[in-house]
Each structure stands twice: as C-alpha cells, then as structure tokens.
Amino acid sequence: MEPSYYLVLSAMLFTIGAVGFMVRRNAIVAFMCVELMLNACNLALVTFSHAWGLLDGQVASFFVMVVAAAEVVVGLAIIVSIYRTRRSASVDDANLLKF
C-alpha cells in the first residue's frame, strides 16, 4: 500500500492536534493534543521506516515515546501543582508572564 495514505493521515492527525492546542483552554486537553501531535509524528516515522525498509524510523519512534512519557510526567505534575495553587486548570489563567 502506498505510504502516502499513512502520511496524509499523519498530517491530518497532526493538524487536528495543533488546532486543538490552539483552541482548547483546559490544560489537560491541550496536553492531550500535544500527545496526539507526537503520535502523528510517530506514525510518519513508522511509515517511513516501512517505506525505506530501515528500522531506524522505528527506533526514532521508540525514543519519541520515551521522551513523551517523561514529558507527560513532568507536565502533569506542573498542571497539578498549578491547579493546587490557583484552583484552575485553564491555560489562559496562567498569563502573568507578559509585557
């Protein structure tokens, strides 16, 4: 099967994730959108791996997962601690760092 289909699927997922990040205010949902974007990238990597017959793409995908795991742990911890101090999980409420 043509790799292009997978790539198009990957592009769509990525864009949905990006738009979601820009649109949603709930920090957890925004974070999920980031995860979706990472997963879309992974799909592209695996597709390329399959298309070129090289396993390196899968290795890269594997590392992306590891990094995503670390990122989720820290990110969620930040969300929880912000929620505890500000009673809010909205990314718009944390806007003190500005002009």
């Binding site: 990006a18 649109v23 925004a30 990314v91 718009d92 002009f99």
Partner: peptide, 16 residues
C-alpha cells in the same frame, strides 16, 4: 510587546 500577551495559545498560534 503587545504580542507578548501571556496566553500560551496565542504563542502556539504564532508558532504554527
């Protein structure tokens, strides 16, 4: 500097 409005979502928009 008005672009630096503190909203992460605006920054994301700019990045995209």
């Amino acid at each position: 500097r008005r672009l630096q409005n503190g909203f992460v979502r605006s920054y994301a928009l700019t990045m995209v």
